[in-house]
Amino acid sequence: MSSKVYTTESGEVVYGIVAEFDTPADVYHAAEQVRDAGYSKWDVHTPFPIHGMEDAMGVKRTILPMIIGVVGLTCAGLGFLMQWWMNGVDYQLTVQGKPFATWQAFVPITFELGILFSAFTAIIGMLFFNRLPQWYHPLLKKDRFLRVSDDRFMICIEAGDSNFDPDRTRALLEGAGGKHIDLVEE
């Protein structure tokens, strides 16, 4: 998708342009402007999730919950089959005069296994879709960027975006009220 590679005067490849904002409201409205300008490879970095930001950025709802549901129900079913096969077929054990395979007694473990694998899916899925862990990232090299984890709000538009243009993108962020606008090197 990305067509052009931009470099700085010193020859470093440009990752993107980052702009800083003071308040959630500022970054929220700036995000709406970036969204409306048609960018796709960009992101808003905030110390905490700002509600409604998905809409301001035009991010589609994640399908993660759906995947968790499917995996959870499947694993619960497999868990039931496991018990049914182990106690009902492979190693039949007479306990309390109950049948070898009793669905009632298998409910607790079926349930627990469904929950366990849903939880694994939730956290692994979240990391997978977020492409994490990723211990190296160009943004983390910027000193000012580290303040995002405290009280700063930043928008970064990547150079790989097809709409990206060093001057126009900078002007857009400036117009949206961005401060300390800066290039980020790869």
């Binding site: 995000a31 992101d43 808003v44 970095h45 905030t46 110390p47 905490f48 999730p49 700002i50 930001m53 998905e54 950025m57 991010v59 709802r61 994640t62 993660l64 919950p65 968790i68 959870g72 349930f111 929950i115 849903s118 939880a119 939730a122 956290i123 899925g125 979240m126 990391l127 879709f129 977020n130 994490l132 862990p133 990723q134 211990w135 190296y136 990232h137 943004l139 983390l140 960027f145 995002v148 984890s149």
Partner: peptide, 26 residues
């Protein structure tokens, strides 16, 4: 894990967090 406070990440993070809360309750 290299968390960089991205809103795109936050979105999935919150979805996963809510699901975890939902399954931790039962």
């Amino acid at each position: 894990l290299g968390w960089r406070f991205s809103s795109r990440h936050w979105h999935r993070y919150e979805a996963a967090y809510l699901v975890l809360a939902g399954i931790s309750t039962p």
